[in-house]
Amino acid sequence: MNARVLVLLCLPGLAHAQGFAGLGGEAGGFALPDPSVAPAFPDDHGAHPDYRIEWWYVTANLTGPDGTPYGLQWTLFRSALAPREATGFASPQNWLGHAAVTTPESHLFTQRLARGGIGQAGVEAAPFAAWIDDWRMAGPDFDNLDLAASGPDFAYDLSMSATGPLVLHGEAGYSVKSGKGQASYYYSQPFFAVEGVLRLPDGAVEVSGHAWFDHEWSSQPLSDRQTGWDWFSLSFEGGAKLMGFQLRENDAAGYSYASWIAPDGTLTPYVGDFEAEPLEMASLDGVEVPVRWAVRLPQREVAVDVTALNPAAWNALSPPYWEGPVTITGSHEGRGYLEMTGYE
Rank of each mutant, 00 (worst) to 15 (best):
R4W: 00
P12D: 15
H16E: 15
H16Y: 09
A17M: 13
G22T: 03
L23T: 09
E26V: 06
A31P: 07
S36V: 10
A38D: 08
F41H: 09
P42W: 00
P42Q: 05
P49R: 01
Y51P: 00
I53S: 00
E54M: 04
W55Y: 09
N61T: 05
T63C: 08
P65D: 15
G67A: 09
Q73C: 00
P83M: 08
N94W: 05
E105K: 13
S106G: 09
S106T: 14
G116F: 01
G117Q: 03
I118N: 02
G119D: 10
G122F: 00
V123R: 01
E124M: 10
A126F: 10
A126E: 12
F128W: 10
A130Y: 02
D134T: 15
P140R: 11
P140M: 07
A149D: 13
S159M: 11
L166R: 15
G173K: 09
G179A: 06
K180R: 12
G181T: 02
A183Y: 01
Y186A: 01
Q189A: 04
V194N: 09
E195L: 05
L198D: 03
E206W: 07
G209D: 09
Q220L: 01
R225P: 08
Q226Y: 07
F232M: 10
S233E: 08
L234P: 04
L234N: 03
S235H: 13
F236Q: 10
G238Y: 13
G239S: 04
A240D: 11
A240I: 05
L242M: 04
F245S: 01
F245K: 01
G254F: 02
G254E: 03
S259E: 05
T266F: 03
D273K: 11
E280S: 11
E280C: 01
M281C: 02
D285A: 14
G286M: 03
V287H: 06
V289D: 08
W314G: 07
S318N: 15
P320V: 05
P320A: 11
P325F: 00
V326K: 03
S331R: 12
E339L: 03
M340A: 14
Y343P: 04
